[in-house]
Nucleic acid binder design. Structure first.
Lengths: 343, 343
DNA sequence: TTGTAAGCGTTATCAA
DNA sequence: TTGATAACGCTTACAA
């Protein structure tokens, strides 16, 4: 038999639908003990639970939160997803996931689809390049929280790693380990805010440290997904050239790039740590087992997701505040790839 | 301003709501050219799109498919998710994801929540241990497709890797490479169907090959997440003991276990391939870069997800057929970890 | 404190 | 071919 409706419960308990609805929404506030008990009994014998679609239609609120991620296969996104999910669940919301599959042109579609399903707000881990779809929905009164990636045209709560600090931490670690010719490797920076921030923080670190640390020098390199392998290999060889007697060290801006660097070093027969130092953003379960162990900067991904969701839920509860910016610190995980010579 | 409703469109076009609805659902089948044009114009000027909640309420169908995964942080689940998503999108369905976070007791909650949102069917990548919640919903007429994990009490379409074949492939590869003392390492097998299938396929392979291959011997080991590190280390040392002069080789049943094995070997100072051969289920982006490269058995994850979704959608379209079982072949990715001595 | 009735945005049934 | 009108399952004035 089909799901029980509020009418079934009302009939079973010998009361009106309104009474059942009151029991559900205001619990015992307005109800006689006896009636409440009868309703409760009816609900449990019919194992009734309200139809959220109908509720959404009537209330205009769906208890749904839209989560749009640029790419679910990015472990970072998944980690954020998990954190957000937990927070949403606790607050009685359900996450609706829309994965862009790295096609940023679909962002508008995602937001419109989710809007159609009456999501009450958005958590976005996207580029924001699809004609300000997010901005629009913010104007329509749906709160938005940005995670990890800023939208340049948008004022909204923003939750992210403290990139500047993390870069400084990674670079300083390399320097303290003895590496002097630094290279920052990232995917193409263009319009992707964390990449921009990391790159410029890297440059800032260099110009700040040139005075105090002798022989320190650095440069940056952008590696594309579909480039010929030789490009990155060349860059590494140049790096060793310019290093001369000094030790070269690489700071890579995410796990994918880190793997590309490792691959290139493998091709060239270069040893991690010994020939070139390496520190990479994003600590993964496999980081300890690549080569002598990869030194990484771990992001508090769970917290990022949780806090993003909490921010959104606060807004949904009516919190009025100028857009907040919440930056969380990363944690350095030193391993063999940033140790100059084998023990 | 708020979303346009069908009433707004009707007013704008100077027709009734029914006419607009007809335009939407039966297109031009029943409509005068002129009227159709007016409705079309009104729809586009108001940029109207129907409210799926209202549609769901009225039709009893939501265009939603529920996907329940045991653990999103498992890359396998994510890959399936991506495949399923693509297929659903093409068929005009939206996926609602529910992540169990490895707590199989929440499966019932997941199914009930999704049912409340009127999902039309389920794709389950779960244990099915939560009191046959899935079975129930199947009885309520919601089609279910199982991916990777069987529910012993359930007859439903099932999509999975051909585990028996994959195990044979992995074991044979080790044997052909010269390893003779084989160990199958998996997480606790209890009631997790792919683990059971892989383990028993391993044992079957052994008993079938003992006759033809001299000196071949094998055993199995179950490694728990929270066990002391020493347990697995011991197992490896035992393995080398019993191997004697022969080469020991390990077949590990998923990526997590593979990393545990690698960790244990690292602790013991054993070299991958040279001291112990290793082939692991699940090919990951990092597999090539751990040690001399990890030999793996790649699953066609995208296909698994896509086919699962397609099966479900066929059922939703009314296909009546006894439960199907669709097994896809894995692919061996040989790398350094199954090469006995360094080149 | 409880019930009646209207309405959320659709679709489906009936007349016209 | 088109238009009223009644549902779908729920919430919420307003009445009682």
């Amino acid at each position: 038999m089909a799901r029980a409706t509020i009418a079934d419960v009302a009939r079973q308990a010998g009361v009106s639908k309104a009474t059942v609805s009151r029991f559900l929404n205001h619990r015992d506030k307005l109800l006689t003990k006896g009636i409440a008990a009868r309703v409760e009994a009816a609900i449990s014998t019919l194992s009734y639970s309200p139809n959220p679609m109908a509720q959404a239609l009537k209330r205009g609120r769906s208890r749904l939160i839209g989560l749009v991620v640029a790419d679910v296969s990015n472990p970072f996104s998944v980690a954020v997803l998990r954190g957000a999910e937990k927070a949403c669940q606790q607050a009685g919301y359900l996450l609706m996931l829309f994965n862009l599959g790295n096609d940023s042109r679909r962002e508008r579609e995602a937001i419109e689809t989710l809007t159609a399903y009456q999501v009450e707000g958005f958590i976005l881990n996207t580029l924001g390049q699809d004609g300000g779809a997010a901005v629009e929905s913010a104007r329509h009164g749906k709160p938005v929280v940005l995670v990890d990636r800023r939208h340049h045209d948008m004022r909204a709560d923003f939750v992210s790693l403290d990139n500047a600090d993390a870069v400084r931490m990674g670079a300083r670690h390399l320097v303290e380990a003895g590496y002097r010719e630094l290279l920052f490797v990232s995917e193409p920076v263009k319009d992707v805010s964390p990449r921009e921030e990391r790159k410029s923080a890297f440059c800032r670190y260099l110009s700040e440290s040139e005075n105090t640390i002798t022989n320190l020098h650095g440069s940056t390199f952008e590696s594309m997904a579909d480039e010929p392998e030789a490009r990155l290999s060349n860059a590494l060889q140049c790096l060793r050239q310019s290093a001369g007697e000094r030790l070269p060290g690489i700071l890579s801006s995410n796990a994918v790039v880190t793997l590309r660097v490792v691959a290139a070093m493998t091709r060239l027969g270069l040893r991690l740590g010994t020939d070139i130092g390496l520190v990479g953003f994003d600590d993964t379960e496999w980081s300890p087992y690549v080569g002598p162990g990869l030194s990484t900067i771990a992001q508090p991904t769970d917290d990022l997701g949780r806090i993003a969701a909490d921010c959104l839920i606060e807004r949904l509860k009516g919190l009025e505040l100028p857009p907040r910016q919440i930056l969380l610190s990363g944690r350095l995980m030193p391993r063999g790839s940033s140790v100059p010579s084998p023990a």
